[in-house]
Structure formats: structure tokens, C-alpha cells
Design a binder for these strands. Sequence first.
DNA 1: AACCTCGACAACCGCAGCCGC
DNA 2: CGCGGCTGCGGTTGTCGAGGT
Length: 362
Amino acid sequence: MGRAPCCDKNGLKKGPWTPEEDQKLVDYVQKHGHGSWRTLPKNAGLQRCGKSCRLRWANYLRPDIKRGRFSFEEEETIIQLHSVLGNKWSTIAARLPGRTDNEIKNYWNTHIRKRLLKSGIDPVTHTPRLDLLDLSSILRSSICNSPQLMNISGLLGLQSLVNPDLMRLLNTLVTCQRGRQDYSLQNLQDNQVSKPQNQNHQFSSFQPNHQMQSSNHQQTPLLAASSTAAFAQFLNEAQQVLQGNEQSSSINLDSVNSQHTMRQNHNVGFTSNSTENVVHFQSNQDYGSDQVFINSLPGNSNFQLNNYINQDSFGLNSVLSTPTSSQTPMNSSNATEDERDSYCSDFLQFQIPDMLDINGFM
DNA sequence: AACCTCGACAACCGCAGCCGC
DNA sequence: CGCGGCTGCGGTTGTCGAGGT
């Protein structure tokens, strides 16, 4: 219908607001309320269009606006809400008192989005991105850092707790992976000699990423395709085992560290096209009790990210609840940006190899 | 010291929906 | 019911300062 411009552009100022303009706007709104934004600038003696005034008031001058950096709880809430609502910034802002949609949008684009990408998560779909991931990174350090790790159950120290079939499957995967390595066991051992500290970390394969990086950088990078094929083989065998294991379709190691249950688990599920079995690499936030469990789940056959909140499998109710304080490295207002990065990449449990340039995907 | 790059965030633009006339 | 104005919303751009070269 040929929309008229929001205001007469002639003679109206644009760009950053001066303190004098801010004061005029604040004084006027406090005395009269904003009323009609269209007529406000004239009444307040401002050479601005009403739209500009409304934006300035709503995003900056409003008295109930909370300034300063976002807390971890706020950030967590934003991520959860965004995974459900998408770019509904105003709706998200309604759940964060004192924060504006513009502020949240900016924070998302400059902080959270990049962090998710760095962690291998598509910020739009909140699912892992195969094109960014090297699945082998999850197990690589184990393969390369410990000559005895061909026995994964030994690596995990869990023989008495874990279904031996699961251990055999993990061994299969590791063997498959290892067969693609160009270097020999001797090289691995030499490597180990050069990094004796790793022998003290039986759980090194499931250490948070920031603890793995130094060793990873010295490994021969594996192609994602090869690791995907290996993983497909692994899943195929997993399916067979699970089919023959009807009494328990869920092999869950949660009990191993049940004392460290967390309020929120952010689980990354790898699913195969040929099976509904999902392998979760789940990281607890205490940095010391990472877990692996295989679960038989119905549903998607694609890569998926499941956010389980209080056992509510991504229910809207839990997402929309006001976040409560949780014991994380992020709670402290003293948490540094690095700590936030480390934490986030930990619970998302993905790591983009440095050699991959993800800028092109951003 | 000058220049460049990049991150952060304020502000603008244009579209869509709502509502009153 | 349709038109036009107003507001809200989301995407994008502009500006500025800090840090690096």
C-alpha cells in the first residue's frame, strides 16, 4: 500500500545521541510519559524522529534497564530460549528482566553465536554441525596418548561396572580409528614418552576439551570422513549388540558418577542413519567425572543435540523456567571470558580443530 | 606515533501486525 | 471492510575504542 516514512526526514538528526538529547527525552518522558512517539520529539524539543526516540528510550534510557555484562544464568537462559524460540529477541528479552531485545541480540551475535560455532554447534539449529566436526577428536587423545588404551575398559577402569559388550564395541571403534593412523605403535610409545604426564590420566579421552588441546595439537589430524566411517561401523556393531541385549537397551554409566549429577546436562547425541541408537558423550561440569553412555532412543536419525533439563527432554516448561543458580565455573562474576569459553565448550563437548577455518561458516 | 584490525554495541532501516477511523 | 498511522520486531550498519603492528 505504499507505506509512508515513519517521520519527516528533513532536518532531523541521526546518529549517536548527545547527553543533552538524552536529558531532554528523559525529562519529557518522566513528566508526561511517552504518549505518542510520533509527536514526542516536537513536544520535547528534539530534532529526532519518534522512532529514534522510542528506540533510545527503550534500549538505553529506560530506568529499569540492567547494564553490565550478562551473567552465566542469563547466558544460559538465552541459549535455551533461543533453541526453542529462535530469533524471537523480544520474547527472549521478556524472560530476562532489565535486558532489552537489542542488547540480547547484540550479545548473541558477538558472544554466544561465536562460542557455539567454536564448539561445533550450529547457532541456528542448535545441532552439531558435521561439516565442522572431527569426531575422532573425541577419542583421538586416547588413541595416541596411551599405548595400553586399546583396552578401553582398562582405560576407563570400569570393567566391573560396564557391560562388556559396550567395552568391546568401544575397542572396535578405537581399533578402527587406530588402523587409520599413519604412525606405528612405536611412534605412539615414543609420543607417550615425550608426554609422560598423560599416563596419569586414564580418563584423558574424555577430559574437557581445554585439557586436551595441548596434546591434540601434536597429533596427525584425522579426516572427519574417516572418523565418520569408523563411527558408522561402531554404531552398526552397537546396534547388533543392543538388539541381542533385549533385557537392557540402555547401557548407562550414570551410576558411576551418580553423586555428581547436575541440574542440567547438555547431551550431544550422535545418531546413525541406519539405527536409532544414540551414543552420548556427556560431560559433567565438575571437570572430573565425564561419562559415556549408550542409549537406545527413538526419534531422529540425524545428528541431534538434546538438552535434558531435569530429565525433561527439552520440554518448553523447563526451558521457560527462570534459571536457578547452579554450581558452575561460570557463576562467579569474576569468571573470565576464557573460563566462559572453556566451560561452554566443555558442556557442549565439541571442539573444532584449529586447522579448520570456521570463519567461512560464520 | 601512525595506521590497521577487530570487537562491542548503539542506532538505523524496513517490514509486518495491530488498531482506530 | 479497507486504508493509513503507529508500534514492535529483527536484520543490518555505523561508530568508537582498544589492542596490535
